[in-house]
């Protein structure tokens, strides 16, 4: 057993575990992590298959950017939200397992029945262009240039579309930091407003703070409470 097959059996098993983890995890974030794990293992496989450029771009693009974006969304959506495991269609789970297994069997039968030519690897291809990255560059920027450019145009269009969809019209120009500070200085209240009062019997936000002379600091209350400040304090201090 040479080094390559040792690496293959380790990473292959890990990648399958990652893929299974994706399916059986109950938390969406855990699923995303299992996918990332599977992807890193696939990248290691690409390394052993003499495609280092593909391996690194797999990690940078898929693990580092795409899955991170997924995680980002999942985290914003909710820290503790886990999907409901109730079956909406009756017998769906059993059917899914059956179909999945039969599809797997189909693929295994198909692959084992195919007579593959002798494996040659990428060594000769890589040497022919002076290296793996150079060979890829030759294919992308020479032979398939048009397809590559068309794909990039498509991607840029998609990005522009996303920007247009997310764009929000501003009704007033945004205030700059200097404008805000100037406004604040002129408003007569440069410092932050005083906190609500903390009394022995109440520390709720509708309890006004007391000034040194014993009067109420109206500014210490949220505007909604300012009118009935007097009542609550009478109650607290009496």
């Amino acid at each position: 057993m040479n080094g390559e097959s040792v690496v293959f059996w380790i990473t292959a098993i890990f990648a399958v575990i990652g893929a299974l983890g994706l399916v059986v995890s109950r938390k969406a974030v855990h699923s995303a992590l299992w996918v990332a794990f599977a992807m890193v293992n696939l990248a290691i496989l690409y390394f052993t298959l003499e495609a280092p450029f593909l391996a690194t771009s797999q990690i940078v693009v898929y693990t580092g950017a795409v899955m991170m974006l997924f995680l980002f969304v999942l985290m914003i959506v909710g820290v503790d939200s886990s999907d409901s495991l109730l079956e909406t269609i009756k017998g769906q789970r059993a059917l899914a397992i059956l179909l999945g297994l039969s599809f797997g069997a189909l693929i295994i039968v198909g692959i084992t029945a195919t007579a593959a030519p002798a494996v040659v690897g990428l060594v000769n291809e890589n040497i022919g262009y002076g290296g793996n990255a150079q060979g890829l560059a030759h294919l992308i920027f020479d032979r398939y240039l048009l397809a590559f450019e068309a794909t990039s145009a498509l991607l840029i269009t998609a990005v522009l579309g996303a920007m247009v969809l997310a764009h929000r019209e501003r009704w007033a120009p945004r205030k700059t930091q200097s404008e805000l500070s100037r406004e604040r200085t002129r408003s007569g209240q440069v410092t932050p407003l005083p906190n609500p009062g903390v009394m022995a019997r109440s520390n709720s936000v509708d309890t006004p703070a007391l000034l040194p002379d014993g009067t109420f600091a109206q500014a210490s209350l949220p505007t909604q409470f300012q009118s009935h400040a007097d009542d609550s304090v009478k109650e607290v201090t009496s």
Partner: peptide, 28 residues
């Protein structure tokens, strides 16, 4: 060293972000 080792550095850095992001999420 290998032909794309600088990209490898980028790849490892992008995996390293997971540590920080997951720490933030897992803390609940």
């Amino acid at each position: 060293d290998f032909p794309v080792s600088v990209l490898y550095v980028l790849a490892i850095a992008s995996v390293g972000i997971y540590g920080i992001v997951l720490a933030g999420w897992a803390s609940g």
